Simulated scan of single mutants.
Amino acid sequence: MLLVLLMTWVALWILGRAWSVLWPLVIALLLTTLTWPLARFLRRHGWRPGLAASVVTVLFLLVGAGTVVGIAVPVAAQSGELVDGVVSGIQQLREWAAGPPLNIGDDQVSQAFDAAAAGIQNSVGSVINVTLTGVGTVVNGVVTTVLAIFLMFFFLKDGPRFLPWLTRQLPGRLAVDIPTVAARSWDTLGAFVRSQALVGLLDAVFIGLGLWIVGVPLVLPLAVLTFVSAFVPIVGALFAGFVAVLIAFVSNGPTDALIVLAIIIAVQQLEGNVFQPILQSRGLGLHAAVILLAVTLGSSMAGIVGSLLAVPVAALVAVAWNYVREQLSEPAREEDTGEKSPPQESPAAESPGAESPAAEPA
């Protein structure tokens, strides 16, 4: 037991030291599961692996750029109205604060602004440090994204050769066990990404419909932002909801902003407690309660990254456990019946790792 605990600690320490490399690798794997069906379709219709991977990567970049443009252009086109709405919203807040029960006068507001300005001036060093930290985070994010896209291209191009190569490198029974678990894990990651995309689509449709009924502007960009942010647990939903409520406040007033806030809370509760557990439990073979507990544990241990990776990690652990259980139960069945069970076909026949390199064009 002490040896197992020591090896676990060493493995976690190595993962922590190599996280700058592992994080782009994880993102690339998730992106590959999302784009692999199109690459597989092109390869099956005679496209060479490099050409298919290049086309899919370029299309992915175009979709990403189109999403950014689809959000930024309408916002820029209505920036004047948004600025006027912000000024009007601030004036409404001052008028509301001046009345009962707060009865805050203009002199008190001015004193509050002066105190805030003095506090900012006194903490210039802290502001600079926070700014530099934010800039460093943005730079690291850009580097991670670029590296993940390059890795995604190579996974799309050479992914089917990985499992045959891994089979040749491993000795004995490991040459069968590990590639089988890897193929099943690939299918599980694909199910996770597809279920997450479906959950994000449901969020975008319901929230966008609510914004359209209330009469909030920029419905389409807000719906697209909701769909994209659904892939980032907790923070993504909070950010998209904050933007929607802010735009509703500055354009339609506080009443519509409260209505939009109620719609977003209702949809998020429905998504977090109904849609996401049900869809992910069906796609990943995990009970909804297990998914909720995994997300809670992951977020408490590693924050946003932990909540993002909690469900796929739990699903991969379940895949490995199910395979071990199958292998341990096979000898008992053979002893009881006196017959050898037929070999099981891997369910990952459609995954990148399941294609034979001999079937690929040279």
Rank of each mutant, 00 (worst) to 15 (best):
L328P: 07
L147T: 10
L270P: 03
I278A: 08
V135T: 03
N103R: 12
V295R: 09
G215K: 04
A183G: 07
E339W: 10
Q92C: 12
S185Q: 08
V58S: 04
F154V: 05
Q169K: 11
A11I: 00
E339P: 06
P233D: 10
I27G: 02
N122A: 14
A302I: 00
F113W: 10
W165P: 10
G141L: 05
V10R: 02
W13S: 15
V214M: 05
L201P: 05
A315T: 03
L166P: 11
V55K: 07
S346T: 08
N252K: 12
H45S: 14
I247F: 01
F150P: 11
W186L: 06
Q121H: 08
N140W: 09
E81P: 00
A294T: 07
V143K: 12
N252M: 04
V243G: 00
D177I: 15
E334D: 03
F206K: 01
V228L: 13
P342Y: 07
D106H: 13
L51T: 12
F150N: 10
T131V: 02
Q121P: 05
I259A: 05
E335F: 06
V181F: 08
L2W: 13
A116N: 09
A148F: 08
S307L: 02
F153V: 14
A248Q: 05
L198M: 14
E350I: 12
V290S: 09
S229F: 10
S79L: 15
P342T: 12
Q169W: 15
A359R: 04
A348W: 06
A77V: 02
A204I: 10
V199F: 02
P343D: 02
F162L: 03
V58Q: 08
A349V: 12
G208R: 00
W186H: 13
E330D: 06
G119L: 07
L29W: 11
P171A: 04
A320E: 13
Q121A: 13
V193E: 15
I304S: 01
V63S: 01
A76W: 05
A266G: 04
L59R: 07
A320S: 15
P164G: 03
L189K: 03
V216A: 01
I234E: 11
V176H: 11
R282A: 12
G134D: 02
I149H: 04
E81R: 05
P352H: 07
I178W: 14
V143G: 02
N122S: 13
S299Y: 12
V313R: 04
W9V: 15
E95L: 08
I120N: 05
D106N: 13
V311S: 00
D203F: 01
G105S: 06
A115E: 15
T67Q: 09
A65F: 13
L261D: 00
A237S: 03
M7P: 03
S54A: 04
L189C: 12
A116V: 10
L308E: 04
R43D: 07
P347W: 12
V73P: 08
F239V: 01
G99A: 05
L30H: 07
F192G: 00
S110R: 15
W47D: 14
A65P: 02
V87K: 01
V83G: 09
G190T: 09
L246W: 01
P233H: 04
G283W: 06
P160H: 06
T188S: 05
T145A: 11
A289T: 14
V324H: 14
V214D: 10
T8H: 08
F227T: 07
P74C: 14
V193L: 10
A65W: 09
P357W: 11
E81V: 01
V319D: 01
F231E: 01
G253M: 03
V83E: 09
V127R: 04
